[in-house]
Design a protein around this nucleic acid. Sequence first.
DNA 1: AGGTATTCACATGAAACTATTCTCTGAGTTAGG
DNA 2: TAACTCAGAGAATAGTTTCATGTGAATACCTGT
Length: 400
Amino acid sequence: MVGELDKIFDSFSQKNLFKNKAVLQSQYTPENIPHREKQIEQVATILAPALRGERPSNLFIYGQTGTGKTLSALYVKDEMLKRARRENVPLKIEYINCKYKKVSDTEYRILAEIIKKLGGSVPATGLPTGQVYNKFLELVESEKQLVIIILDEIDQAVNKISDNFLYNLTRLNSELSKSQIGVIGITNDLKFLESLDPRVRSSLSEEEILFPTYNALQLQDILKSRAAESFKENALEDGVISKCAAYAARTHGDARRALALLMVSGDIAERMGCDRVKIEHVDMANEKIDKDKITSFVESAPRQFQLVLLSIIDLIEKGQGNIFTGDIYNIYSDLCLKSKIEVLTQRRVSDIIAEFDMAGVINARVISKGRHGRTREIKLTIPDQEIKKIKSILIETLNI
DNA sequence: AGGTATTCACATGAAACTATTCTCTGAGTTAGG
DNA sequence: TAACTCAGAGAATAGTTTCATGTGAATACCTGT
């Protein structure tokens, strides 16, 4: 049955360029990680004592997005666990991503997450944090073992919680007798360390490793090795890979982006019925990625955000050159009144605008107009042809 | 003319408040022995 | 009597409001020439 269906699907898309698309997705862990041998080696060296049952130094990894930090860390983690199992070393390494909301972005949730991974359980909420700490300690102490915790995107956790959490975590060892804890922090915020409390800094970053950005050539290598597995033979025209690499290198050498670019290019080529991926497909893919990011953000944004954005678009369409916070707020509050949605304070709207800026939907710059005060000057980053489409999405979802 | 002081229109921060979500607890209820 | 249900208590979060303070430069206001 399944085989028959497959045949149908196969004949449907004759121009199947992919061999295994998953290889290009970001969750995929490749066999070898090009141009990170040195970093991986360093990580391994630092963590190696764990295999002898000694507590390794706390480690701090930093580097821009898409430089292979997480990948390398996970790779070392897997290798070490394999080894530990073989040699019967009581070692646990747990990976926590502090960024994904709903999963863990507060002290409580992170702890709960760790506990869950260690095999315990706590209610998702409702317990005093101190009790969760105890539970965690109990769990670690329940047998003699070494626990290494990898905290990815650790900066997210800290600016949400305060660095007390890290301080506690690094100090826990003094309360443990049988077991020990090691912490690996990963961040892409290069200034993160400076902003930490000195006490935390010194204990957390006993060792530091910087993951440099990839240059275009290195990106090409990465793309080539993945393309070989993901695309069918001869599916890529010459120059496609270097074009992807070049685009990604322009945005601080982000490998993740390079891979996404390659994948979307392949999708586009496939859909257009081409039997090879051409260079122009990469250009289209590049635009599409930007566009999709904005569209999905806009679609999933809360109502109030959408209203604010709609106000901005209104102002743009009225042809005003410069748009300021005050103007937006006026239009916005009118809009709210008309559609009977409660009006938020200017303070809040100001924050919403700032968030749009962060998301890259708009480009806001704080300027001073002298006697006429200080405000944000706002430009939309959505290309003109897209504005209408976004506007209709907004109107539709807002149901105005 | 050149120098200071004001002043605007918000930005930016911190604290406090609100609604909501989730668990746990224990009283009251039910069903079976 | 054990199991079950369900309202209420407590804890925590997200999203906001309230209050407070900060700020860059165009303009108003001096000052001495």
